[in-house]
Design a protein around this nucleic acid. Sequence first.
RNA 1: UGACCUGUGGUGUAAUUGGCAACACGUCUGAUUCUGGUUCAGAAGAGUCUAGGUUCGAGCCCUAGCAGGUCAACCA
Length: 565
Amino acid sequence: MAETTNSNTETKKANFIHAQIDADLAAGKNDKRVHTRFPPEPNGYLHIGHAKSICLNFGLAQKYGGKTNLRFDDTNPSKEETEYVESIMEDVHWLGFDWEDRLYYASNFFPKLHAFAIQLIKEGKAYVDDQNAETISEQKGTPQKPGIESPFRNRTIEENLDLFERMTAGEFDEGEKVLRAKIDMTSPNMHMRDPIIYRIMKAHHHRTGDKWCVYPMYDFAHGQCDYWEGITHSICTLEFEVHRPLYDWFVDQLMDSDYRPRQIEFSRLNLTYTVMSKRKLLELVKDNHVNGWDDPRMPTISGLRRRGYTPESIRNFSDKIGVTKVDGTTDVSLLEFSVREHLNKTAQRVMGVLDPLKVVITNYPEDQEEMLSAVNNPEDENMGRRDVPFSREVYIERNDFMENPPRKFFRLGPDREVRLRYGYLIKCNEVIKDEEGNVTELHCTYDSESKGGKSSDGRKVKGVVHWVSAKHAVKAEVRLYDRLFTDEEPDGHKDVDFKAFMNPDSLKVLNECYIEPFVKNSKPLDHFQFERLGYFNMDPDSTADNPVFNRTVALRDSWAKAQKK
RNA sequence: UGACCUGUGGUGUAAUUGGCAACACGUCUGAUUCUGGUUCAGAAGAGUCUAGGUUCGAGCCCUAGCAGGUCAACCA
Protein backbone atom coordinates (compact mmCIF):
# COMPACT_ATOMS: atom_id res chain seq x y z
CA MET A 1 0.00 0.00 0.00
CA ALA A 2 2.82 2.34 0.86
CA GLU A 3 4.30 1.88 -2.57
CA THR A 4 1.10 2.84 -4.31
CA THR A 5 0.77 5.92 -2.19
CA ASN A 6 4.30 7.01 -2.93
CA SER A 7 4.03 6.58 -6.64
CA ASN A 8 0.84 8.61 -6.50
CA THR A 9 2.36 11.57 -4.80
CA GLU A 10 5.33 11.50 -7.11
CA THR A 11 3.24 11.67 -10.23
CA LYS A 12 0.80 14.17 -8.76
CA LYS A 13 0.91 17.41 -10.65
CA ALA A 14 1.01 20.80 -9.10
CA ASN A 15 -2.27 22.54 -8.52
CA PHE A 16 -3.39 25.87 -7.14
CA ILE A 17 -3.31 24.59 -3.58
CA HIS A 18 0.29 23.48 -3.95
CA ALA A 19 1.05 26.91 -5.34
CA GLN A 20 -0.52 28.58 -2.31
CA ILE A 21 1.32 26.33 0.12
CA ASP A 22 4.60 26.83 -1.71
CA ALA A 23 4.10 30.57 -1.49
CA ASP A 24 3.33 30.38 2.23
CA LEU A 25 6.36 28.23 2.81
CA ALA A 26 8.57 30.56 0.80
CA ALA A 27 7.28 33.48 2.86
CA GLY A 28 8.17 31.58 6.00
CA LYS A 29 4.63 31.58 7.35
CA ASN A 30 3.54 29.50 10.34
CA ASP A 31 7.06 28.27 11.04
CA LYS A 32 6.92 26.59 7.66
CA ARG A 33 4.49 24.00 8.93
CA VAL A 34 1.81 22.32 6.83
CA HIS A 35 -1.06 21.03 8.93
CA THR A 36 -4.41 20.10 7.41
CA ARG A 37 -7.60 18.58 8.75
CA PHE A 38 -10.52 16.54 7.54
CA PRO A 39 -13.60 17.94 9.29
CA PRO A 40 -16.78 15.92 8.59
CA GLU A 41 -20.03 16.54 10.40
CA PRO A 42 -21.12 13.18 11.83
CA ASN A 43 -24.59 13.38 10.33
CA GLY A 44 -24.26 10.62 7.74
CA TYR A 45 -21.87 8.22 6.12
CA LEU A 46 -18.95 9.38 4.03
CA HIS A 47 -19.29 9.15 0.26
CA ILE A 48 -16.97 9.22 -2.73
CA GLY A 49 -17.00 13.01 -2.64
CA HIS A 50 -15.58 12.95 0.87
CA ALA A 51 -12.93 10.54 -0.37
CA LYS A 52 -11.65 13.31 -2.60
CA SER A 53 -11.34 15.62 0.38
CA ILE A 54 -9.71 12.94 2.53
CA CYS A 55 -7.14 12.11 -0.13
CA LEU A 56 -6.49 15.80 -0.67
CA ASN A 57 -5.98 16.71 2.97
CA PHE A 58 -3.95 13.68 3.95
CA GLY A 59 -2.12 13.72 0.64
CA LEU A 60 -1.05 17.32 1.10
CA ALA A 61 0.35 16.60 4.54
CA GLN A 62 2.20 13.58 3.18
CA LYS A 63 3.69 15.60 0.38
CA TYR A 64 4.88 18.42 2.62
CA GLY A 65 5.88 16.31 5.58
CA GLY A 66 3.07 17.73 7.68
CA LYS A 67 0.18 16.35 9.67
CA THR A 68 -3.54 15.88 9.27
CA ASN A 69 -6.16 15.94 12.00
CA LEU A 70 -9.52 14.23 11.98
CA ARG A 71 -12.08 16.60 13.42
CA PHE A 72 -15.76 15.97 13.90
CA ASP A 73 -17.64 19.17 13.28
CA ASP A 74 -20.36 18.42 15.79
CA THR A 75 -21.93 21.77 16.56
CA ASN A 76 -25.48 20.76 15.73
CA PRO A 77 -26.59 18.03 18.14
CA SER A 78 -29.95 17.57 16.46
CA LYS A 79 -28.41 15.87 13.43
CA GLU A 80 -25.39 14.09 14.76
CA GLU A 81 -24.95 10.55 16.05
CA THR A 82 -22.24 8.29 17.39
CA GLU A 83 -22.97 5.70 14.72
CA TYR A 84 -21.80 8.19 12.13
CA VAL A 85 -18.66 9.03 14.08
CA GLU A 86 -17.69 5.38 14.11
CA SER A 87 -18.40 4.76 10.46
CA ILE A 88 -16.39 7.82 9.48
CA MET A 89 -13.34 6.68 11.41
CA GLU A 90 -13.60 3.24 9.87
CA ASP A 91 -13.88 4.64 6.36
CA VAL A 92 -10.91 6.97 6.70
CA HIS A 93 -8.76 4.13 7.97
CA TRP A 94 -9.97 1.82 5.25
CA LEU A 95 -8.97 4.37 2.65
CA GLY A 96 -5.48 4.07 4.04
CA PHE A 97 -5.07 7.22 6.11
CA ASP A 98 -4.25 7.71 9.76
CA TRP A 99 -4.77 10.74 11.99
CA GLU A 100 -2.71 9.02 14.71
CA ASP A 101 -3.37 10.77 18.03
CA ARG A 102 -4.95 13.81 16.45
CA LEU A 103 -8.64 13.09 16.86
CA TYR A 104 -10.66 16.18 17.66
CA TYR A 105 -14.26 17.17 18.12
CA ALA A 106 -15.49 20.70 17.75
CA SER A 107 -17.43 19.91 20.91
CA ASN A 108 -14.13 19.59 22.77
CA PHE A 109 -13.78 23.31 22.20
CA PHE A 110 -17.21 24.30 23.51
CA PRO A 111 -15.73 25.81 26.71
CA LYS A 112 -13.13 27.81 24.79
CA LEU A 113 -15.69 28.89 22.23
CA HIS A 114 -17.99 30.03 25.01
CA ALA A 115 -15.23 32.00 26.66
CA PHE A 116 -14.34 33.56 23.34
CA ALA A 117 -17.96 34.64 22.88
CA ILE A 118 -17.83 36.34 26.26
CA GLN A 119 -14.61 38.04 25.23
CA LEU A 120 -16.32 39.42 22.14
CA ILE A 121 -19.21 40.69 24.25
CA LYS A 122 -16.79 42.42 26.58
CA GLU A 123 -15.08 44.05 23.62
CA GLY A 124 -18.45 45.27 22.40
CA LYS A 125 -18.27 42.99 19.35
CA ALA A 126 -21.21 40.75 20.13
CA TYR A 127 -24.74 41.23 21.43
CA VAL A 128 -27.81 39.30 22.40
CA ASP A 129 -30.78 39.71 20.08
CA ASP A 130 -34.30 39.00 21.37
CA GLN A 131 -35.97 38.90 17.97
CA ASN A 132 -37.26 35.76 16.32
CA ALA A 133 -35.79 34.11 13.27
CA GLU A 134 -38.19 35.68 10.81
CA THR A 135 -37.56 39.22 12.01
CA ILE A 136 -33.82 38.79 12.00
CA SER A 137 -33.98 37.32 8.53
CA GLU A 138 -36.05 40.24 7.26
CA GLN A 139 -33.67 42.76 8.71
CA LYS A 140 -30.78 41.00 7.04
CA GLY A 141 -31.95 42.27 3.66
CA THR A 142 -31.03 40.49 0.47
CA PRO A 143 -27.80 40.16 -1.46
CA GLN A 144 -28.91 43.19 -3.46
CA LYS A 145 -30.35 45.16 -0.55
CA PRO A 146 -28.42 46.12 2.60
CA GLY A 147 -29.78 45.07 5.97
CA ILE A 148 -30.89 47.21 8.86
CA GLU A 149 -29.65 47.11 12.40
CA SER A 150 -31.43 45.27 15.16
CA PRO A 151 -33.02 47.40 17.88
CA PHE A 152 -31.06 45.28 20.37
CA ARG A 153 -27.74 45.97 18.70
CA ASN A 154 -26.62 48.59 21.16
CA ARG A 155 -27.36 46.98 24.47
CA THR A 156 -24.79 47.61 27.15
CA ILE A 157 -21.99 45.18 27.65
CA GLU A 158 -23.31 44.39 31.13
CA GLU A 159 -26.75 43.58 29.82
CA ASN A 160 -25.33 41.37 27.06
CA LEU A 161 -23.12 39.56 29.54
CA ASP A 162 -26.05 38.94 31.85
CA LEU A 163 -28.35 37.79 29.05
CA PHE A 164 -25.80 35.45 27.52
CA GLU A 165 -25.10 33.96 30.92
CA ARG A 166 -28.79 33.33 31.41
CA MET A 167 -29.06 31.84 27.90
CA THR A 168 -26.27 29.49 28.87
CA ALA A 169 -28.01 28.63 32.12
CA GLY A 170 -31.08 27.55 30.22
CA GLU A 171 -33.38 30.35 31.34
CA PHE A 172 -34.77 30.90 27.87
CA ASP A 173 -36.49 28.68 25.37
CA GLU A 174 -35.16 27.76 21.98
CA GLY A 175 -35.48 30.63 19.53
CA GLU A 176 -36.06 33.23 22.22
CA LYS A 177 -32.59 34.76 22.01
CA VAL A 178 -29.42 34.47 19.99
CA LEU A 179 -25.94 35.87 20.28
CA ARG A 180 -24.76 37.79 17.23
CA ALA A 181 -21.43 39.21 16.20
CA LYS A 182 -21.55 42.97 15.68
CA ILE A 183 -19.99 43.49 12.27
CA ASP A 184 -21.76 45.35 9.46
CA MET A 185 -25.43 45.13 8.47
CA THR A 186 -24.73 46.91 5.19
CA SER A 187 -21.93 44.63 4.02
CA PRO A 188 -22.35 43.33 0.47
CA ASN A 189 -21.50 39.94 1.97
CA MET A 190 -24.55 38.51 3.71
CA HIS A 191 -22.39 36.55 6.10
CA MET A 192 -20.95 39.73 7.56
CA ARG A 193 -24.38 41.16 8.45
CA ASP A 194 -24.19 40.47 12.19
CA PRO A 195 -24.09 36.68 11.88
CA ILE A 196 -25.60 34.56 14.61
CA ILE A 197 -22.84 32.88 16.55
CA TYR A 198 -24.71 31.10 19.33
CA ARG A 199 -28.21 29.70 19.43
CA ILE A 200 -30.24 28.01 22.13
CA MET A 201 -30.78 24.30 21.52
CA LYS A 202 -32.13 22.05 24.21
CA ALA A 203 -30.99 18.91 22.47
CA HIS A 204 -28.96 15.98 23.66
CA HIS A 205 -25.45 16.08 22.23
CA HIS A 206 -23.83 12.76 21.34
CA ARG A 207 -20.72 13.68 23.28
CA THR A 208 -21.46 16.46 25.74
CA GLY A 209 -24.87 15.12 26.67
CA ASP A 210 -27.11 17.73 28.27
CA LYS A 211 -24.32 19.92 29.54
CA TRP A 212 -24.99 22.72 27.09
CA CYS A 213 -28.13 24.40 25.90
CA VAL A 214 -26.38 26.95 23.72
CA TYR A 215 -24.39 25.77 20.74
CA PRO A 216 -22.01 27.67 18.45
CA MET A 217 -22.75 28.00 14.76
CA TYR A 218 -20.42 26.53 12.12
CA ASP A 219 -18.90 29.91 11.30
CA PHE A 220 -18.16 30.61 14.92
CA ALA A 221 -16.52 27.24 15.44
CA HIS A 222 -14.60 26.25 12.37
CA GLY A 223 -11.88 28.86 12.09
CA GLN A 224 -11.36 28.89 15.84
CA CYS A 225 -10.97 25.13 15.96
CA ASP A 226 -8.49 25.40 13.10
CA TYR A 227 -6.63 28.00 15.10
CA TRP A 228 -6.55 26.02 18.32
CA GLU A 229 -5.51 22.85 16.55
CA GLY A 230 -2.68 24.63 14.78
CA ILE A 231 -4.09 24.07 11.30
CA THR A 232 -2.23 26.01 8.63
CA HIS A 233 -4.32 25.25 5.55
CA SER A 234 -8.03 24.77 6.03
CA ILE A 235 -9.30 23.24 2.84
CA CYS A 236 -13.01 23.25 2.16
CA THR A 237 -15.45 23.28 -0.72
CA LEU A 238 -16.41 26.18 -2.93
CA GLU A 239 -19.67 27.11 -1.24
CA PHE A 240 -17.68 28.36 1.74
CA GLU A 241 -15.87 30.91 -0.36
CA VAL A 242 -18.18 33.72 0.77
CA HIS A 243 -17.64 32.65 4.37
CA ARG A 244 -13.94 33.37 4.19
CA PRO A 245 -14.13 37.04 5.24
CA LEU A 246 -16.03 35.95 8.34
CA TYR A 247 -13.57 33.14 8.98
CA ASP A 248 -10.81 35.72 8.83
CA TRP A 249 -12.72 38.17 11.02
CA PHE A 250 -12.97 35.68 13.86
CA VAL A 251 -9.35 34.63 13.47
CA ASP A 252 -8.38 38.30 13.65
CA GLN A 253 -10.10 38.61 17.02
CA LEU A 254 -8.28 35.51 18.23
CA MET A 255 -4.75 35.93 16.91
CA ASP A 256 -2.07 36.45 19.48
CA SER A 257 0.99 35.63 17.36
CA ASP A 258 2.06 35.47 13.75
CA TYR A 259 0.41 32.12 13.27
CA ARG A 260 -2.80 32.10 11.27
CA PRO A 261 -4.74 29.43 9.44
CA ARG A 262 -5.76 30.04 5.85
CA GLN A 263 -8.98 28.83 4.26
CA ILE A 264 -8.64 27.51 0.71
CA GLU A 265 -11.61 26.36 -1.34
CA PHE A 266 -11.81 23.74 -4.07
CA SER A 267 -14.70 22.38 -6.08
CA ARG A 268 -16.50 19.36 -4.73
CA LEU A 269 -16.78 16.17 -6.72
CA ASN A 270 -19.77 15.68 -8.98
CA LEU A 271 -20.16 12.34 -10.70
CA THR A 272 -22.46 11.58 -13.57
CA TYR A 273 -25.41 9.34 -12.65
CA THR A 274 -24.50 9.65 -9.00
CA VAL A 275 -26.38 11.25 -6.15
CA MET A 276 -23.93 12.87 -3.81
CA SER A 277 -26.21 14.77 -1.48
CA LYS A 278 -26.18 13.49 2.09
CA ARG A 279 -29.77 14.56 2.51
CA LYS A 280 -30.88 12.44 -0.44
CA LEU A 281 -28.75 9.49 0.57
CA LEU A 282 -30.27 9.67 4.03
CA GLU A 283 -33.70 9.64 2.42
CA LEU A 284 -32.84 6.50 0.46
CA VAL A 285 -31.79 4.80 3.68
CA LYS A 286 -34.67 6.04 5.82
CA ASP A 287 -37.32 5.12 3.25
CA ASN A 288 -35.77 1.69 2.73
CA HIS A 289 -35.05 2.12 -0.93
CA VAL A 290 -31.69 0.56 -0.14
CA ASN A 291 -30.50 -1.76 2.60
CA GLY A 292 -28.61 0.76 4.67
CA TRP A 293 -25.78 3.20 4.12
CA ASP A 294 -23.42 0.42 3.07
CA ASP A 295 -25.72 -0.99 0.43
CA PRO A 296 -23.38 -1.74 -2.46
CA ARG A 297 -25.45 0.44 -4.76
CA MET A 298 -24.73 3.49 -2.63
CA PRO A 299 -21.93 5.90 -3.55
CA THR A 300 -20.83 5.83 0.08
CA ILE A 301 -17.34 4.66 0.89
CA SER A 302 -18.75 1.74 2.84
CA GLY A 303 -21.07 0.92 -0.06
CA LEU A 304 -18.21 0.96 -2.51
CA ARG A 305 -16.18 -1.19 -0.13
CA ARG A 306 -18.89 -3.83 0.07
CA ARG A 307 -19.33 -3.61 -3.64
CA GLY A 308 -15.69 -4.57 -3.96
CA TYR A 309 -13.90 -1.34 -4.71
CA THR A 310 -10.36 -1.21 -3.35
CA PRO A 311 -8.88 1.69 -1.38
CA GLU A 312 -6.07 1.94 -3.94
CA SER A 313 -8.50 2.40 -6.77
CA ILE A 314 -10.31 5.19 -4.96
CA ARG A 315 -7.04 6.92 -4.10
CA ASN A 316 -5.91 6.63 -7.70
CA PHE A 317 -9.21 8.01 -8.88
CA SER A 318 -8.86 10.92 -6.53
CA ASP A 319 -5.44 11.55 -7.98
CA LYS A 320 -6.63 11.46 -11.55
CA ILE A 321 -9.45 13.96 -11.15
CA GLY A 322 -7.17 16.61 -9.71
CA VAL A 323 -8.16 19.67 -7.72
CA THR A 324 -9.48 22.94 -9.13
CA LYS A 325 -12.11 25.57 -8.53
CA VAL A 326 -14.01 24.65 -11.65
CA ASP A 327 -17.49 23.38 -10.95
CA GLY A 328 -17.66 20.39 -13.26
CA THR A 329 -18.92 16.84 -13.42
CA THR A 330 -16.61 13.89 -13.70
CA ASP A 331 -17.73 10.91 -15.72
CA VAL A 332 -18.21 7.78 -13.57
CA SER A 333 -16.39 5.84 -16.24
CA LEU A 334 -13.20 7.30 -14.82
CA LEU A 335 -14.03 5.81 -11.42
CA GLU A 336 -14.81 2.48 -13.02
CA PHE A 337 -11.63 2.61 -15.03
CA SER A 338 -9.71 3.07 -11.80
CA VAL A 339 -11.05 -0.15 -10.28
CA ARG A 340 -10.54 -2.14 -13.46
CA GLU A 341 -7.01 -0.85 -13.72
CA HIS A 342 -6.20 -2.00 -10.22
CA LEU A 343 -8.16 -5.25 -10.15
CA ASN A 344 -6.95 -6.35 -13.54
CA LYS A 345 -3.46 -6.50 -12.14
CA THR A 346 -4.30 -8.08 -8.83
CA ALA A 347 -7.49 -10.11 -9.06
CA GLN A 348 -7.36 -13.87 -9.48
CA ARG A 349 -9.08 -15.24 -12.60
CA VAL A 350 -11.88 -17.67 -11.96
CA MET A 351 -14.52 -19.40 -14.03
CA GLY A 352 -18.11 -18.93 -13.04
CA VAL A 353 -21.34 -19.37 -14.97
CA LEU A 354 -24.10 -16.98 -14.09
CA ASP A 355 -26.80 -18.24 -16.41
CA PRO A 356 -26.10 -21.95 -16.87
CA LEU A 357 -26.82 -24.09 -19.92
CA LYS A 358 -25.97 -27.74 -19.53
CA VAL A 359 -23.61 -29.32 -22.03
CA VAL A 360 -23.25 -33.11 -22.19
CA ILE A 361 -20.07 -34.31 -23.84
CA THR A 362 -21.38 -37.52 -25.26
CA ASN A 363 -18.05 -39.09 -26.17
CA TYR A 364 -16.47 -38.43 -22.78
CA PRO A 365 -16.63 -41.52 -20.51
CA GLU A 366 -19.39 -41.30 -17.88
CA ASP A 367 -17.34 -41.82 -14.78
CA GLN A 368 -14.17 -40.18 -15.94
CA GLU A 369 -12.88 -36.90 -14.59
CA GLU A 370 -9.61 -35.06 -14.78
CA MET A 371 -7.91 -31.93 -13.57
CA LEU A 372 -7.03 -29.15 -15.98
CA SER A 373 -4.44 -26.55 -15.17
CA ALA A 374 -5.54 -22.93 -15.26
CA VAL A 375 -3.63 -19.67 -14.95
CA ASN A 376 -4.51 -17.57 -11.93
CA ASN A 377 -3.47 -14.26 -13.40
CA PRO A 378 -1.97 -13.79 -16.85
CA GLU A 379 -0.65 -10.40 -15.71
CA ASP A 380 1.31 -11.90 -12.87
CA GLU A 381 3.04 -15.27 -13.06
CA ASN A 382 3.72 -15.21 -9.34
CA MET A 383 0.07 -15.89 -8.71
CA GLY A 384 0.62 -19.37 -10.06
CA ARG A 385 -1.84 -21.89 -11.43
CA ARG A 386 -4.71 -23.94 -10.12
CA ASP A 387 -6.38 -27.19 -11.11
CA VAL A 388 -9.93 -27.14 -12.35
CA PRO A 389 -11.96 -30.37 -12.44
CA PHE A 390 -13.46 -31.45 -15.74
CA SER A 391 -16.09 -34.10 -16.40
CA ARG A 392 -18.72 -35.27 -18.84
CA GLU A 393 -21.30 -32.63 -17.99
CA VAL A 394 -20.44 -28.96 -17.83
CA TYR A 395 -22.31 -25.70 -17.66
CA ILE A 396 -21.61 -22.92 -20.07
CA GLU A 397 -23.09 -19.44 -20.21
CA ARG A 398 -26.50 -19.52 -21.88
CA ASN A 399 -25.64 -16.56 -24.07
CA ASP A 400 -22.49 -18.26 -25.29
CA PHE A 401 -24.77 -20.39 -27.47
CA MET A 402 -27.00 -19.15 -30.26
CA GLU A 403 -29.20 -21.34 -32.35
CA ASN A 404 -29.09 -18.92 -35.24
CA PRO A 405 -25.85 -17.10 -34.75
CA PRO A 406 -25.45 -13.78 -36.55
CA ARG A 407 -22.35 -12.94 -38.51
CA LYS A 408 -19.35 -12.26 -36.32
CA PHE A 409 -20.63 -14.37 -33.46
CA PHE A 410 -17.63 -16.51 -32.55
CA ARG A 411 -19.16 -18.71 -29.90
CA LEU A 412 -21.19 -21.91 -29.92
CA GLY A 413 -24.02 -22.80 -32.30
CA PRO A 414 -25.33 -25.92 -34.04
CA ASP A 415 -22.42 -27.74 -35.73
CA ARG A 416 -20.00 -25.13 -34.47
CA GLU A 417 -16.86 -25.70 -32.51
CA VAL A 418 -15.43 -23.72 -29.62
CA ARG A 419 -12.76 -24.23 -27.02
CA LEU A 420 -13.59 -24.79 -23.40
CA ARG A 421 -11.02 -22.61 -21.73
CA TYR A 422 -8.03 -24.61 -20.45
CA GLY A 423 -9.74 -27.72 -21.81
CA TYR A 424 -10.85 -29.26 -25.05
CA LEU A 425 -12.48 -28.27 -28.30
CA ILE A 426 -16.12 -29.24 -28.32
CA LYS A 427 -18.55 -29.37 -31.21
CA CYS A 428 -22.29 -28.99 -30.82
CA ASN A 429 -24.16 -31.87 -32.44
CA GLU A 430 -27.60 -31.68 -30.97
CA VAL A 431 -29.81 -29.06 -29.37
CA ILE A 432 -32.32 -30.38 -26.83
CA LYS A 433 -35.47 -28.37 -26.20
CA ASP A 434 -38.52 -28.58 -23.99
CA GLU A 435 -42.13 -28.51 -25.19
CA GLU A 436 -42.10 -24.75 -25.40
CA GLY A 437 -39.04 -24.73 -27.56
CA ASN A 438 -36.60 -23.48 -24.96
CA VAL A 439 -33.10 -24.83 -25.24
CA THR A 440 -32.45 -26.97 -22.19
CA GLU A 441 -29.32 -28.87 -23.05
CA LEU A 442 -26.63 -29.28 -25.68
CA HIS A 443 -25.05 -32.52 -26.78
CA CYS A 444 -21.50 -32.08 -27.89
CA THR A 445 -18.49 -34.17 -28.71
CA TYR A 446 -14.99 -33.30 -27.71
CA ASP A 447 -11.69 -33.69 -29.49
CA SER A 448 -9.61 -35.73 -27.08
CA GLU A 449 -6.42 -34.58 -28.80
CA SER A 450 -7.15 -30.89 -28.36
CA LYS A 451 -6.08 -30.46 -24.75
CA GLY A 452 -3.56 -27.77 -23.97
CA GLY A 453 -4.13 -25.36 -26.80
CA LYS A 454 -3.60 -27.48 -29.86
CA SER A 455 -5.85 -29.60 -32.00
CA SER A 456 -4.89 -32.85 -33.70
CA ASP A 457 -4.96 -31.38 -37.22
CA GLY A 458 -3.91 -27.82 -36.44
CA ARG A 459 -7.37 -26.27 -36.92
CA LYS A 460 -8.11 -23.20 -34.90
CA VAL A 461 -11.33 -21.90 -33.41
CA LYS A 462 -12.02 -18.28 -32.71
CA GLY A 463 -14.34 -18.82 -29.77
CA VAL A 464 -13.22 -19.68 -26.29
CA VAL A 465 -15.83 -20.19 -23.64
CA HIS A 466 -15.76 -20.41 -19.85
CA TRP A 467 -17.39 -23.37 -18.17
CA VAL A 468 -17.73 -25.22 -14.94
CA SER A 469 -17.98 -28.94 -14.27
CA ALA A 470 -21.58 -29.66 -13.28
CA LYS A 471 -20.60 -32.33 -10.82
CA HIS A 472 -17.97 -30.25 -9.04
CA ALA A 473 -19.34 -26.75 -9.27
CA VAL A 474 -20.25 -24.75 -6.21
CA LYS A 475 -23.67 -23.25 -6.30
CA ALA A 476 -23.34 -19.59 -5.53
CA GLU A 477 -25.40 -16.47 -5.23
CA VAL A 478 -24.28 -13.63 -7.41
CA ARG A 479 -25.44 -10.06 -7.03
CA LEU A 480 -25.05 -7.77 -9.95
CA TYR A 481 -25.18 -4.27 -8.58
CA ASP A 482 -25.68 -1.53 -11.05
CA ARG A 483 -25.58 2.19 -10.66
CA LEU A 484 -28.56 3.36 -8.73
CA PHE A 485 -29.64 5.88 -11.31
CA THR A 486 -30.31 5.75 -15.00
CA ASP A 487 -29.05 7.89 -17.80
CA GLU A 488 -31.72 10.40 -17.05
CA GLU A 489 -30.22 11.51 -13.77
CA PRO A 490 -27.05 13.21 -14.86
CA ASP A 491 -26.20 15.35 -11.87
CA GLY A 492 -26.10 14.57 -8.20
CA HIS A 493 -26.84 18.06 -7.05
CA LYS A 494 -29.83 19.07 -9.09
CA ASP A 495 -32.94 19.23 -7.02
CA VAL A 496 -35.03 16.67 -8.85
CA ASP A 497 -37.22 13.84 -7.67
CA PHE A 498 -34.35 11.42 -7.98
CA LYS A 499 -36.32 8.42 -6.85
CA ALA A 500 -38.35 8.64 -10.02
CA PHE A 501 -35.16 7.85 -11.88
CA MET A 502 -34.14 4.90 -9.84
CA ASN A 503 -33.12 1.99 -11.96
CA PRO A 504 -35.24 -1.04 -11.08
CA ASP A 505 -32.46 -3.29 -12.37
CA SER A 506 -29.87 -1.74 -10.13
CA LEU A 507 -29.78 -4.96 -8.16
CA LYS A 508 -30.10 -8.37 -9.78
CA VAL A 509 -29.71 -11.48 -7.69
CA LEU A 510 -28.91 -14.61 -9.66
CA ASN A 511 -29.57 -17.77 -7.70
CA GLU A 512 -28.70 -20.48 -10.21
CA CYS A 513 -25.04 -19.65 -10.56
CA TYR A 514 -22.14 -22.04 -10.51
CA ILE A 515 -18.58 -21.26 -9.60
CA GLU A 516 -15.56 -23.47 -9.94
CA PRO A 517 -14.86 -25.25 -6.62
CA PHE A 518 -11.93 -23.08 -5.51
CA VAL A 519 -14.23 -20.74 -3.60
CA LYS A 520 -14.43 -23.08 -0.65
CA ASN A 521 -10.89 -22.11 0.20
CA SER A 522 -11.12 -18.42 -0.40
CA LYS A 523 -11.30 -15.67 2.17
CA PRO A 524 -14.04 -13.11 2.33
CA LEU A 525 -13.44 -9.87 0.46
CA ASP A 526 -11.02 -11.46 -1.97
CA HIS A 527 -11.24 -10.05 -5.44
CA PHE A 528 -11.75 -12.18 -8.52
CA GLN A 529 -12.11 -11.62 -12.19
CA PHE A 530 -14.77 -13.95 -13.47
CA GLU A 531 -13.79 -14.63 -17.03
CA ARG A 532 -15.62 -12.24 -19.32
CA LEU A 533 -18.16 -11.35 -16.62
CA GLY A 534 -16.40 -8.72 -14.59
CA TYR A 535 -14.62 -8.16 -11.30
CA PHE A 536 -16.23 -9.64 -8.24
CA ASN A 537 -15.60 -9.83 -4.57
CA MET A 538 -16.91 -12.20 -2.01
CA ASP A 539 -19.60 -10.50 0.03
CA PRO A 540 -18.53 -10.08 3.65
CA ASP A 541 -21.74 -11.80 4.73
CA SER A 542 -21.17 -14.94 2.71
CA THR A 543 -19.95 -18.27 4.03
CA ALA A 544 -18.17 -21.23 2.48
CA ASP A 545 -21.48 -23.08 2.31
CA ASN A 546 -23.26 -20.14 0.81
CA PRO A 547 -20.83 -18.12 -1.24
CA VAL A 548 -22.19 -14.75 -2.30
CA PHE A 549 -20.42 -12.61 -4.83
CA ASN A 550 -20.90 -8.94 -5.56
CA ARG A 551 -19.87 -7.54 -8.87
CA THR A 552 -17.51 -4.64 -8.42
CA VAL A 553 -17.59 -3.51 -12.00
CA ALA A 554 -18.28 -5.15 -15.32
CA LEU A 555 -15.55 -5.96 -17.78
CA ARG A 556 -15.52 -3.93 -20.95
CA ASP A 557 -17.41 -5.96 -23.50
CA SER A 558 -17.16 -4.89 -27.09
CA TRP A 559 -19.40 -7.71 -28.29
CA ALA A 560 -22.22 -6.50 -26.06
CA LYS A 561 -21.59 -2.99 -27.25
CA ALA A 562 -21.76 -4.05 -30.88
CA GLN A 563 -25.03 -5.82 -30.18
CA LYS A 564 -26.64 -2.66 -28.92
CA LYS A 565 -25.94 -0.80 -32.14
C1' U B 1 -29.76 46.00 -9.25
C1' G B 2 -25.00 43.52 -5.30
C1' A B 3 -20.63 40.75 -3.71
C1' C B 4 -17.48 36.74 -4.57
C1' C B 5 -15.81 32.65 -7.75
C1' U B 6 -15.14 30.02 -12.49
C1' G B 7 -14.74 29.58 -18.15
C1' U B 8 -8.82 25.04 -22.26
C1' G B 9 -11.14 18.57 -27.15
C1' G B 10 -17.27 14.75 -25.29
C1' U B 11 -15.34 14.43 -19.77
C1' G B 12 -11.54 15.47 -15.90
C1' U B 13 -6.96 17.98 -15.70
C1' A B 14 -1.69 20.16 -17.69
C1' A B 15 1.05 24.02 -20.03
C1' U B 16 8.58 26.80 -16.08
C1' U B 17 9.67 33.94 -15.75
C1' G B 18 4.33 35.27 -22.26
C1' G B 19 7.45 30.75 -26.87
C1' C B 20 4.50 25.03 -31.82
C1' A B 21 -1.77 23.65 -26.39
C1' A B 22 0.12 18.19 -23.24
C1' C B 23 -1.89 13.88 -20.27
C1' A B 24 -5.79 10.57 -18.70
C1' C B 25 -10.80 8.71 -19.38
C1' G B 26 -14.11 8.02 -23.40
C1' U B 27 -14.54 7.14 -28.85
C1' C B 28 -12.63 4.81 -33.42
C1' U B 29 -8.88 1.72 -36.24
C1' G B 30 -5.19 -2.26 -36.58
C1' A B 31 -2.06 -6.20 -34.31
C1' U B 32 -1.68 -9.90 -30.44
C1' U B 33 -4.50 -13.17 -27.36
C1' C B 34 -6.88 -20.21 -24.61
C1' U B 35 -12.52 -15.72 -23.73
C1' G B 36 -14.79 -9.89 -28.12
C1' G B 37 -10.98 -8.98 -21.72
C1' U B 38 -5.77 -7.72 -21.26
C1' U B 39 -1.56 -5.88 -23.80
C1' C B 40 0.62 -3.23 -27.93
C1' A B 41 0.51 0.27 -32.10
C1' G B 42 -2.17 4.22 -34.18
C1' A B 43 -6.26 7.87 -35.34
C1' A B 44 -9.98 11.45 -34.84
C1' G B 45 -11.31 15.38 -31.66
C1' A B 46 -9.95 21.99 -28.67
C1' G B 47 -6.64 26.69 -31.19
C1' U B 48 -8.11 27.94 -25.01
C1' C B 49 -16.15 31.93 -23.73
C1' U B 50 -16.43 36.66 -27.05
C1' A B 51 -14.47 41.38 -28.86
C1' G B 52 -10.64 44.67 -28.71
C1' G B 53 -5.54 45.98 -26.92
C1' U B 54 -0.05 45.43 -25.49
C1' U B 55 3.91 42.34 -27.75
C1' C B 56 8.27 39.74 -32.71
C1' G B 57 5.02 36.32 -30.08
C1' A B 58 -0.86 35.79 -25.55
C1' G B 59 -4.35 30.03 -22.81
C1' C B 60 -1.18 33.12 -19.58
C1' C B 61 -0.83 40.50 -19.29
C1' C B 62 -4.71 44.89 -19.97
C1' U B 63 -9.90 46.69 -21.16
C1' A B 64 -14.97 45.75 -22.09
C1' G B 65 -18.50 42.22 -22.51
C1' C B 66 -20.91 37.15 -22.31
C1' A B 67 -21.98 32.57 -19.86
C1' G B 68 -22.20 29.46 -15.53
C1' G B 69 -21.86 28.87 -10.14
C1' U B 70 -22.23 30.53 -4.96
C1' C B 71 -24.44 33.78 -1.11
C1' A B 72 -30.52 36.03 1.84
C1' A B 73 -30.74 28.22 7.64
C1' C B 74 -31.14 29.93 15.00
C1' C B 75 -27.57 23.67 8.88
C1' A B 76 -22.62 22.34 7.91
